[in-house]
Write a protein that binds this DNA or RNA. Sequence first.
DNA 1: CCAGACATGTAAACAGTTACATGATTAG
DNA 2: CTAATCATGTAACTGTTTACATGTCTGG
Lengths: 174, 174
Amino acid sequence: MDVQSVLLGFLMRSSMTGYDLRKAFSISFSFFSGLSYGSIYPSLKKMESKGLISKHVEIQDGAPNRKVYTITEAGKRVFLDALRSPFVPEQPKNAFLMRLFFFAHLSPEERGATALAQLDSVQRLRKELESVRPEIEARADRFQHLCFQIGLRYFENLADDLSMMVEALQDENG
Amino acid sequence: MDVQSVLLGFLMRSSMTGYDLRKAFSISFSFFSGLSYGSIYPSLKKMESKGLISKHVEIQDGAPNRKVYTITEAGKRVFLDALRSPFVPEQPKNAFLMRLFFFAHLSPEERGATALAQLDSVQRLRKELESVRPEIEARADRFQHLCFQIGLRYFENLADDLSMMVEALQDENG
DNA sequence: CCAGACATGTAAACAGTTACATGATTAG
DNA sequence: CTAATCATGTAACTGTTTACATGTCTGG
């Protein structure tokens, strides 16, 4: 799903500025990496020129004027088409699995330390996710609820795999 | 882990051509998406100019000459450093989760069909992975073995989540 | 005879991140 | 007083895919 479709999706709910969209994304998809302004603002510009969204400028002094975007009928059609289109299943590039693949080149100590570091960071992400759960679920519909659960389970499964590995590696260190 | 480090990793095992490297990658990391020539050949050129690999040309007639690359001592150091470097935990962008997030905009039938399609494609990937298992494990060390198992389990977990979802959506359709 | 493996590479296009540039207001 | 939040945007860079370009050999 490309940036434009995601932005349209959020605009289905309510009109927003680029700044707001970034926040909405980073809250709702806290298990993903964020969306940068460098990709949001150019996308909004493109979508406006294609007539998928319309802009309303709120004059402010001091701060830059707020540009509030609203999805148009054409935009809604494009969004729904994207949502219905068949998708190609994604295969994730996982940096840890790639490292693991070459683990034989490291010493037992280095392997243990690397695996432990990965486990730690996965646990940290998982706890972070759990801590924002109430905030997310407060405004989530049942699908968004499910989405969060699947996202969370992904980290839980990964953590399980990694703890198993850490134990195995510790055994070999004695 | 970037393309260059991965290529160096494979060259640690034996000298190869760009063509061979692509095959090695697509076999070993069948649970990831592949590596294209458009990213392999330029990477090899860069690494050669940095002295990380050296080239030996085998003249062939008819077919283009084979350019066999061998990792240098400098290349080995760079590879090992990359393997030991602390990594940033990755957060996957999962297109299906993004769609799921906006599922409320679809009809119950469309939701069912979309989830089923995703389940199908995950199952297909999983079966494919299972079918190449013997081929992979024949030449794998124990870490590569583990790597494969974790990759496989990722798809198994995903399939479990999805079947649960498909059932839930079928219930709502009656 | 045709598909697929072997083998190399470039160019254009596309997506996205990071860093830069600017500056007011507010909460601790 | 200082960090964070609000608010916009551009430019340079990096990485990657897709399509183009070329041609032989081998197995079914």
